[in-house]
Computed example of a mutant assay.
Amino acid sequence: MALAQLTSADADIGTIYVNPHNVVYVAAGQKYTVLATTVSNQSGVPFLLYVADSVEQVKQKLNIAMGKMLTPA
């Protein structure tokens, strides 16, 4: 299993590693990018991760971790 290395929006946390197979969606926020995951908390609410990477950077890193080759548009 390959993990995508992302930068947390919280500077105190720094680098986080995400299993791309657990990501449901990626959305752009005003200050950060939001990732929703299939992993939920004790109440059944999916965890949201907030990262400093742009949506395009997150997309690229998730695709690379999944072994997908990226082709220029």
Rank of each mutant, 00 (worst) to 15 (best):
S8R: 11
Y32V: 01
K61R: 13
Y25D: 15
Y17T: 10
A28N: 06
V26T: 09
N19W: 07
V58F: 04
K68E: 09
A2K: 15
L6R: 07
K68R: 13
A36W: 12
G67H: 11
M66C: 04
V58H: 05
G44W: 10
P72S: 10
K61V: 00
A9F: 10
P72W: 09
T37P: 02
E56S: 09
Q30N: 08
L6C: 08
L6Q: 05
T7D: 15
G14I: 04
Y50K: 13
K61A: 14
Y25L: 04
K61Q: 11
E56N: 10
G14H: 05
V24W: 07
G29W: 07
A65M: 03
N22Q: 14
V18I: 15
Q60L: 09
H21S: 09
Q57C: 02
M66E: 13
V55Q: 06
A27L: 11
A28M: 01
V34E: 11
N63R: 09
V26L: 01
Q60V: 03
V23E: 10
N41P: 08
M69T: 11
Q42N: 12
Q42V: 08
Q60C: 00
S54D: 05
L62R: 07
L49M: 14
L70N: 04
D12Q: 14
V24T: 12
V24D: 13
L6D: 15
D53V: 01
Q60M: 08
L48M: 12
L70S: 04
K61C: 02
E56D: 13
N41K: 08
G67L: 02
Q5I: 08
P72D: 12
M66I: 01
L48V: 01
A73P: 15
A2V: 05
Q30Y: 02
A28P: 00
V51P: 08
P20I: 01
D53I: 02
K59M: 03
A9Y: 12
V23L: 06
E56L: 09
K59N: 11
A9V: 02
L62D: 05
Q30H: 05
M69F: 07
L70K: 01
P20V: 04
V24A: 11
K31E: 09
V45Q: 13
A4W: 13
A52D: 13
V45A: 12
A65N: 13
L3H: 14
L35D: 03
K59I: 01
V23C: 07
Q30S: 04
I16A: 02
K61Y: 11
Q42G: 00
G44S: 10
I16E: 05
A27I: 02
T38E: 10
L49H: 13
T33I: 06
I16M: 11
A11L: 06
T33W: 04
V23Y: 10
K68V: 00
I16L: 10
Y17M: 12
N63Q: 11
N22E: 11
I13T: 14
M1E: 15
P46C: 09
A36R: 13
V39I: 13
T7A: 03
V51H: 07
V24L: 12
V18S: 05
K59W: 04
N22L: 08
L35H: 04
T71S: 07
A52W: 02
F47N: 12
T15A: 08
Q5F: 05
Y25A: 05
N41A: 06
V58T: 06
A36M: 12
